[in-house]
Design a protein around this nucleic acid. Sequence first.
DNA 1: GACTAGGCGACAAGCAATGTCGCGTCAACT
DNA 2: AGTTGACGCGACATTGCTTGTCGCCTAGTC
Lengths: 312, 312
Amino acid sequence: MSETALRQMRMLQFIPREPRKISAPEMASKLTAAGFDEVTLRTVQRDLNALSKHFPIRSDEREKPFGWFWMKDAPAFGLPALDPQTALTLKLAQNYLNLELPTATLDYLSPYFKAADNVLSEMGGRLAKWPDKVRVLPKGQPLLPPRIDGDVQRVVYQALMENRRAEVVYRKPAEVMEQTFEISPLGLVVRNQVVYIVCTIGESKKTYLLVLHRIQKAQLLDKPAAVIKGFSLEKYIQQGEFGLPTGRKVRLEAVFTHLAGRHLLETALSGDQDTEILPDGRIRITATVVETEELKMWLRSFGDGVEVISLI
Amino acid sequence: MSETALRQMRMLQFIPREPRKISAPEMASKLTAAGFDEVTLRTVQRDLNALSKHFPIRSDEREKPFGWFWMKDAPAFGLPALDPQTALTLKLAQNYLNLELPTATLDYLSPYFKAADNVLSEMGGRLAKWPDKVRVLPKGQPLLPPRIDGDVQRVVYQALMENRRAEVVYRKPAEVMEQTFEISPLGLVVRNQVVYIVCTIGESKKTYLLVLHRIQKAQLLDKPAAVIKGFSLEKYIQQGEFGLPTGRKVRLEAVFTHLAGRHLLETALSGDQDTEILPDGRIRITATVVETEELKMWLRSFGDGVEVISLI
DNA sequence: GACTAGGCGACAAGCAATGTCGCGTCAACT
DNA sequence: AGTTGACGCGACATTGCTTGTCGCCTAGTC
């Protein structure tokens, strides 16, 4: 296979999507870094021009080192191509994520979902009806997602990833006053469509929990994030900051009515779950579970459908 | 840009992933169909060999028209390449889906998740620690997913997509006896990690609900699926086949303790939700909701934390 | 106005890609 | 067992593409 073809494919990967861009000299140095020896700048220029004739790639020629980029709405095509099974799975995932992730977050994945649509609709007319064939039913009571600002999200995510600080304008729900913080994000926790930011504020060592959709404005700062030695998101969550208590392991013994408990026969509470079907059809379950608020809510949700024998 | 390079890229897209495969003659005809005139079979053979030297592509040489395929665990690389934001979103999605979709289903997406891992770990050492920075907390009590056979899943999905029949061997949970059905899948519903197949059996017009993980064996038949005129998955679900009753709209009025209800201030029950904070801190919510079993379970799960005033 | 960086056209040398042909192999059919 | 056909692959000459070099042009900068 010719060096040329390989190089051009590699170049396609180095070209970013529209807001960002790459210049020919940058590209040349990336290529040499990637092991393509002795590529003249001239060759890179020629290649970029050639690629733009066959792919949705354009150059910004307003200033001199031209900036090359994939057009914003260029469809993502993957290698290997999406097979129908994977496309179906993607749509399933989309169906589900729509219920659970904020829209602004999910937008990043839309080129993939679009690609899945294409695959499925190309597979012949019959298959075009797939949306009528697949459904995801939500777990629990559906709630409306809070509105998240796209720019705010981008800044916060970037700050988290690049260990930088951000200045955010924050407003608590029932308050009119806005506050401005300089945050150093430590972690991101998503639960029930709400995105939480674990962070420190200013030079303080104390960790705070901000809610993404309460941030009105955010601006990335060119300052490295404050470092908290030994911080671990896992431990932080274990501490019960999200209302989940320490998570002691307990032995649950309970008797469910047949209707309420039969799903546990197939989706067990734990690996060591014991089940016994009583003569009257009721189901006795014994399992080792973690004692959390969720567990209590889950048990309560069955109302009369469950009788808890013991929980030690 | 040379015809050669373009053709080879196109070939990469035509090559399927491991279980499936494509032969050189097939490839040749696909290429001519795609507008590449006059490609000798010999050239295609040469190209395939060349590609396999630079990509995780292999050929099955056990029988004569060799079958070419991308290796099962080949990482998917997309064009344009995954940017860090998208990669992070993908990992977030994976985190979520792990809790909700059966593992066998999610396996189809694993190349994408792997690609996201690569992007994130290449972004410099600091970013390699991202898994410690992002967490998704499950909604409700976590249950163990049932085990689904990969082959069974593939066959059933394919039957659904191609409107064909499949022969399945089915075993109900507490029974030893296996039954064999010839099913025509009508739709797929996923709820709480359980995949349900809505289908007809044999020539009957009655719809049945099978559970994917109870299928022991499945074989695709070369018979078109039985057609049910006017079937709609949407309507089927509305009929309450999943224990969700008809879904009458009702007006809910309830008073929550502050702790139990404050999340409703930001993630509302409905668009027309009214909230009032009572002098003692409790929260009165009025909203139009659909009366479902989920709603009742949700209300019960708060125990003493909520007092339902009316539900009409 | 000189200087610099980058883009681009032109051109000859070299290298790669292609079609053709022939041989070998394997499997299926007669 | 022989025949036939499909396929993969090595070899080779020819065609045509790719590449580095050089020089010119433009736009911004000191």
